[in-house]
Simulated assay, not measured.
Amino acid sequence: MFWDGPGIELLRGFEATDAGGRVLLPVSAQHLLAFLALHDDGVQRASVAERLWPDSTQCRAAANLRAALYHARHAASAIPIETAGRWMRLSPAVRVDLREARRSARQVVAGLSQLPASCDELVDDLAAELLPGWEEEWLSLERERWDQLRLYALESLARQLCASERYLAALQTALAAIAIDPVRETAHRVVVEVHLAEGNIASALRSYQRYRSFLQRELNVAPSPKMTGLVRNLLRM
C-alpha cells in the first residue's frame, strides 16, 4: 500500500520512511522508534530507558534515552515523537505497518463479512516476522503476542476460504501458519480438512501421517483425538 507520510515498518525488518524515502538512523534511534511504535498509547520515559538499556544504571540509561531521542528527532524530524512530562509516544500521524496488520488480523478472527478477491497481500502481512534479526529482550513478549494473533488469523482465514471453496488459497494460508509454528496442530487440521473438502482422500491421509510422524519424532506424542477423528475411517481402509 502506497503511503507518502511518515511511517515505521516493523514487519520483515525495520525501516523508517517519509514521503516515500527511507530515513537512515543510528541503531539507538531505531530501537527507540521501534519500541514506541509497539506501544500505541505511549509509555513512561523511565520505562523506555529501563527496557532499552537493562544493563545500564538508571542514570546512564536516562542519558542513552536522551541521546537516542536527539538522534531520532535530528535524523527523522518528519517522524514526530511526542513528549509530555514523564510520558512519550510516537505521533498517531505516523503509519505503523504492525498496527495495520494487527487490525486486519483481528477482523479476520472476528469473521470477515466478505472475503477479498485476493488474499495474497493479507497472507503475506500475517506471515511476516516482527523485526527479524533483532535479539533485544524487550521484543520477546511482543513477538509472542504477534505470533499468536497471526496464527489465529491465518487459521481462521484458511477455514473461511475453504468454506468458500477457494481451496488453493485455503491450503496456502494454512501452510503459512504451519511455517510459523510447525508443532501447532490447528493449521495441520485445516490442511486435512481442505483436502477432504476437495475429495483428495490420499492427500488428506498423507498430510495426517506426515504430521503424526513429525510429532512422534520431535516430541514423542500423538495427534489429538480431534485430528485423528478427521481420518479415522481412512485409517481403517
Rank of each mutant, 00 (worst) to 15 (best):
G133K: 13
V43L: 01
E121A: 15
E135H: 12
V94G: 02
G85W: 08
R45F: 03
I8S: 00
A62Y: 02
A170S: 15
V191K: 03
H74W: 15
L234Y: 10
W87Y: 11
A177V: 09
D41R: 14
S118H: 05
T83L: 12
F2H: 13
G111H: 08
E165I: 10
G42E: 02
V123E: 01
D124N: 12
L196E: 08
R45K: 15
R86F: 09
A202G: 08
S104G: 08
V48P: 01
P225N: 00
L161N: 03
V190A: 00
L126W: 13
L149C: 03
A72M: 06
R217Y: 10
L25I: 01
A202Y: 06
E218C: 10
I178D: 00
L131Q: 02
A176K: 04
D120P: 02
S91L: 06
L122C: 03
E193M: 09
M1E: 13
G229E: 03
V109D: 00
R73D: 06
W3E: 13
R150E: 09
G133M: 07
H31N: 09
A75S: 10
S207W: 05
L196G: 01
H39D: 03
D4P: 14
A163R: 14
A177N: 01
R236W: 06
P182A: 07
H74A: 15
R12Q: 13
V48M: 00
N200F: 11
G5S: 06
L112Q: 05
T83D: 07
R89Y: 03
N233T: 14
R145M: 08
F2M: 09
W87Q: 12
L98Q: 00
L33E: 01
A101M: 05
A29E: 02
G229N: 02
V27H: 14
L24Y: 09
I81S: 06
L90V: 06
